[in-house]
Write a protein that binds this DNA or RNA. Structure first.
Lengths: 216, 216
DNA sequence: GCCGAACCGTAACGTTCGTTACGGTGCGTT
DNA sequence: AACGCACCGTAACGAACGTTACGGTTCGGC
């Protein structure tokens, strides 16, 4: 449904990247009340330049979301040794990365503005979704299928298995963070959360020695 | 005439409830761009009345959130027969109710405005959280603990078990809906989703005949 | 019938903010 | 040196909107 193609997107200069970084900082500190004047002030540029480069306020937001999405790309999947411990390590690494991203102030601020606009203009939400949830799924599914091929996992639909993994990892953390709650998420507890989630995922989808499925 | 429950909260008259319903409809149709004029027009009342009753725009939003939260209260937990099938039925009923609520346009609109304001003013987010996620937890934990007492479930921390249940039920649905994606959520698939989630929950936390724990 | 309270509809005020326009500055090119 | 270009800083315009004020209407109580 969502293919990741090499972006023929507008090339961004170094100066423009600085401006988009300023937008991100502004979003983090001042929330959704993002004014063009505040961005210009923080980026030490003129509003005229903002409008010349990004068209209007919406274009600036879109460019910022795409810019941040491009930065978040974690290391792609390498070749697959694929024994049980390697698979566990890779799954846990994904879980740790995901939890770290969704608890970062930058990601939270972007998700908040995208969700705030999701009623009227769905474009921001679609971009966030494509580069967050769906990009993660695209990267995870080959891993899951490799695990199945190695008879370490058992499932019928990789998408379904990934969605369950998603739920086990995120639980109520994302919605609580988005709503302003702050459950403790230091790197220590993130690692513990990831380990628990992967353990539970194996309990549900780990291949039985007999070859049966663990859950309906 | 007579209040169903007596909230120490500001009493709302029938007419005021009509106004708050108008706010909800307005939020659903026009998204976050909620203007006082639009509310007054839709509720067939004057702006002066809005300000007299609710103070300011923020007061109106707070009253709306509380109003909707009060309506959502599902039936409280009754006495506990508590065999395996009764526990399953109760858990599935909670899951169905939760999925139905979070996929309703009303809940989505309220969550969107609360999240949109979570950067600056956390009060709306706190209210939504208290009446959504945390109210659900309060109602679920006694059920879970009764299940443990009946030796149908095995866990150490009810809060942890509930959070996992939350993740198994919601998975990626809530964030996708908030961001404007629309995965199919007819009552049929909601029931199927709930059944799957509860099955997986039992696979993780169901008491073993031997009395051990299923997952770390 | 009369009075006051509550409420409706609308006009008006002031602020914020997106957007545009204008003058000034540093810099590379000829 | 002169020119053009890209950019900065700021002022100004206009629309949207929160908030307030005012005149007209309905309705219950005396």
């Amino acid at each position: 449904m969502t293919a990741l193609v090499a972006p023929a997107e507008p090339e961004i200069s170094a100066r423009q990247a600085e401006v988009l970084d300023a937008v991100l900082r502004q979003l983090v500190t001042d929330g959704n009340s993002l004014t063009m004047s505040a961005v210009a002030r923080r980026a030490s540029c003129s509003k005229e330049t903002l409008y010349k480069w990004f068209g209007d306020r919406d274009g600036l937001l879109n460019a910022t979301v795409k810019y941040q999405a491009a930065r978040v790309h974690v290391a792609a999947v390498g070749p697959d040794p694929l024994d049980r411990s390697a698979l566990t390590a890779r799954l846990e690494s994904f879980a740790i990365n995901w939890l770290t991203v969704i608890s970062s102030e930058t990601s939270l601020a972007l998700n908040r503005v995208a969700i705030g606009q999701a009623g009227a203009d769905k474009s921001l939400g679609a971009i966030v979704l494509a580069n967050g949830r769906f990009a993660l799924g695209s990267r995870m599914k080959p891993v899951l299928e490799a695990g199945r091929k190695a008879e370490l996992l058992a499932f019928e639909d990789a998408e379904e298995a990934f969605r369950t993994l998603f739920g086990l990892v995120a639980r109520d953390v994302q919605i609580r963070l988005l709503l302003g709650d702050s459950p403790s998420l230091d790197p220590e507890s993130i690692r513990a959360e990831a380990s628990r989630a992967i353990g539970q995922f194996f309990a549900l989808y780990g291949a039985q020695p007999g070859g049966g499925k663990a859950a309906p």
